[in-house]
Write a protein that binds this DNA or RNA. Structure first.
Lengths: 251, 251
DNA sequence: AATTTAATGTGTAAAATAAACACATTATTC
DNA sequence: GAATAATGTGTTTATTTTACACATTAAATT
């Protein structure tokens, strides 16, 4: 296949001409198959910090390193379905939304052979979800403390984190981390944790009120050790209608 | 594998415990392999129109439909390398930059069996590149005239087109479509074609001059059938230094 | 050669958005 | 009851975006 480079254009063209379905089926079945995996980058928000869920590598060789939640895709399942299955098998989590990030396919990225992996990511409130698989193999790591992960998982993590920071500015992801009724301080904490920055409280309020997606529920925070703030809920219906109008939170 | 769902958490955990490298090697080699392909979405700019390069499907069953430039990935090559190889084999193009878009892995997306495909895209000036494989199997289609493509290629095309429109607003892709020295009208034509919109000439100029990446070369257009415009070149060095300062072209 | 044509080149005003910044208010804690 | 530490509010300035009109230049036409 590689030698086609040196063949004449004409010969090349002929070789590339119409194939029957069965020709391709043969190629697909016998020749060019590759192991495909999914790696899930699950971001968690807890105590105003952004964390990422890692598992001790299940590969003996890397057992002292942390890795993303991954496994091989079964040829009989959709790629997206595989991501949800793998996440559930590894963590018990089954009620979250996974989004594809990117695919990593360097030839030597995995020691067990050729494995191309598709990264997926998600963002949850750690307190709202239970890890049904509880052991010390799973751990939430602060996103600032990610040093060396197994395989190329550091690179996958970084790509995913950048994508998360971008997406949180373009979509109302933040509200899924909060209770239905939340204070503006809580909302700001979410943005500050994910974007890893501090924002001006007054301008933050102004921005969100001007978007006009917050509903004042006429309630106050309870049991907070300071003056309680007003509670709001996010108007999903209004957002759905005006979706196009969402502007990035460019703090 | 699917039945693990119903197994006890404990049993599940044990099954998922540390594996030796050879265990995984067996899985990788024998069980779960899938055909992986690359599909290239090559956008071309010509006569102030945005086009996309399609090839008549090489699958007999779809021979009356157009398709993206794709082929199977060889297990012995990097995924990115496969994209460049496939593009070259199909078109002769070898001097362009490919960027990964997304991966499509629905189980029945390909009639020949399970094929997961990774989409790549690029953007070139059609006049600056020669298709070395010249036959009527390859054709530049106006991006507005894409109706039904083979397989799920319409979906792949649309995802790629959206990504292109986003990227052209965040990176100086446009200049690779122009000669080294270009007029502001030519630059505006590029943005209007890719973003499929009309812009105000005066505000467009203001925006680009304020970015301060254009160098006045003190020359004028030649052989244009109207008042010639001044020529500029893009200051790549300055851009590289101030990369962070590039602001989206939010017309 | 004069006129017409179809572009380029320039500037200003208004509107919208973002950034910086200070003080009164409220509930808790001591 | 005083101190504390948060919330709630508004103004000013700067920046960015949008809308919009007229003079200028060279080619094309007469």
């Amino acid at each position: 296949m590689y030698n086609l480079y040196s063949m004449s254009t004409e010969a090349n063209r002929l070789l590339k001409s119409v194939k029957t379905l069965s020709t391709i089926q043969t190629e697909v079945k016998n020749i060019n198959r590759i192991a495909l995996s999914v790696d899930c980058v699950i971001f968690g928000f807890d105590e105003n910090k952004l964390k990422v869920l890692l598992i001790r590598s299940d590969l003996k060789k890397f057992h002292d390193k942390w890795s993303l939640l991954g496994d091989l895709v079964d040829p009989r399942e959709d790629l997206n379905a595989a991501a949800y299955r793998i996440l559930k098998e590894r963590t018990g989590l089954n009620d979250l939304y996974l989004e594809q990030v990117s695919t990593f396919g360097e030839i030597n990225r995995h020691p067990a052979g050729r494995v191309v992996t598709v990264a997926y990511c998600s963002l949850i409130n750690i307190q709202h979800h239970r890890l049904k698989i509880l052991d010390n193999e799973l751990h939430w790591h602060d996103v600032h403390d990610i040093t060396d992960l197994a395989f190329d998982h550091k690179q996958i993590f970084e790509t995913s984190y950048r994508q998360l920071q971008r997406r949180v500015q373009e979509h109302p992801l933040a509200f899924s981390l909060l209770p239905k009724k939340f204070s503006l301080r809580e909302l700001q904490n979410v943005y500050e944790a994910i974007l890893d920055t501090k924002m001006d409280r007054r301008n933050f309020r102004k921005k969100f009120f001007s978007m006009d997606f917050l509903i004042d529920v006429n309630e106050m925070e309870q049991n907070v050790p300071h003056r309680p703030g007003k509670l709001y809920k996010f108007n999903y219906e209004k957002y759905e209608k005006k979706k196009k109008k969402w502007v990035g939170i460019d703090f």
